[in-house]
Design a protein around this nucleic acid. Sequence first.
DNA 1: TCTCCGATTAGAC
DNA 2: CTAACGGTCTAATCGGAGA
Length: 427
Amino acid sequence: MVMSQLPRSIALIDCNNFYCSCERVFRPDLDGKPLVVLSNNDGCVVARSNESKALGIKMGEPWFKLRDLARRHGIVAFSSNYPFYADMSNRVMAILSRFSPVQEVYSIDECFLDLTGFGDIRERACAIRRRVIEWTGLTVCVGIGPSKTLAKLANHVAKQHPKSRGIFDYNRLTLAQQNSVLANLEAGAVWGIGRKLSGSLAGLGIHTALQLREADIPSMRARYGVVMEKIIRELRGEPCIEIEEVEPSKKQIVSSRSFGQAVTGLTDLQDAVAHFISNAAGKLRRQKSVAGLLQVFLRTDRFRPEKPQYNPCMSIPLPVPAADSLVLNHWAFQALERLYRSGYEYKKAGVILADIRPEHIVQEDLFSVAQAQPSTALMDTLDKINSRYGRGTLKLSSDGSLRRWEMRADNKSPCYTTDWEQIARCR
DNA sequence: TCTCCGATTAGAC
DNA sequence: CTAACGGTCTAATCGGAGA
């Protein structure tokens, strides 16, 4: 017997204007006002409410260029509050996970659910929306399609058309309707097609998602590689990108920051680097890995080309792979001392942990005296205390005591959901 | 000539 | 008042060094 394969129903659920909506949940007085949330250092716009989008504010725009517009329209700008958004995200993801056994948390505000085989998909999508709004105050859109790429695309359509009321199921369309949806979408709206690629595609006369779907796979693959082939196949309804239920462990961990003010002295840089190391090493230990390579880099202000520029970087292969903050910090300081030149205004610094592998298969140096990683126990204790009493309760003595490099954050909301002290402070 | 590596690029959010 | 332009991550690709 030949079974005709029903298309899979993959849903992409995405919170609308996530960071702005989080802020609004606890500030209903801001309903109807244009809101933006700024990146670290209050640098760029990374989230906009509908009112801000209507004012023509673009994603990633530098905030200082918008000061005038902001004053004229009473735009409210929040500094980003990541612990708060992360907590709200966890709540949303926990709710969504009840609607399917197969979930991939794709980003802080998005996840894929496999809804294949559930009876009334549209009813299920409605239930998802209702539940998330009721339990968190956040609004989500649900896009459904036979592949992740088409689910993303359906989600995009759901967001664009108020008529869809937040839900769009590509699988329910006739072939003619599918064609018309794709014909009305720019190729650049397809997941994986960014600025450069849409420009290049336009040169080939490919402007719409429909034209991209119809493109010749062998020649597109020859020109652009495997990724493009997968995108085209997925647009044709052939799933090529699997749902990843278990989060793969990181292959690289970066901790870096732009400074609130230019930094010139070595001690300030050491202070910042110690902070980056404890942050990165903490993440490394959380995923039970060790790093074999450490990189340290410094940056001057690239937006001021008239000032002397110096952007050095140093890689240190570690004699024994490590996750110990003290060990990593030791090597980072060695690198920093070699990189540092006085007379420059540093605007950013960071560390990168690479060559990452699981901690348990670490091969000890054959000839070293068996010294079972001296401060593993110390790091263990440090991690436990910090996770119980809050990040930054215990830290390296050289970490963050000077804080001259600290970021700008002029309008940060309280950590409403994660910090009792700050909850007490709101009315 | 082939392979491996680091650096660079492109994309996502 | 002024100056002010993010952070993390992956995969693919490229080009040079070394086998």
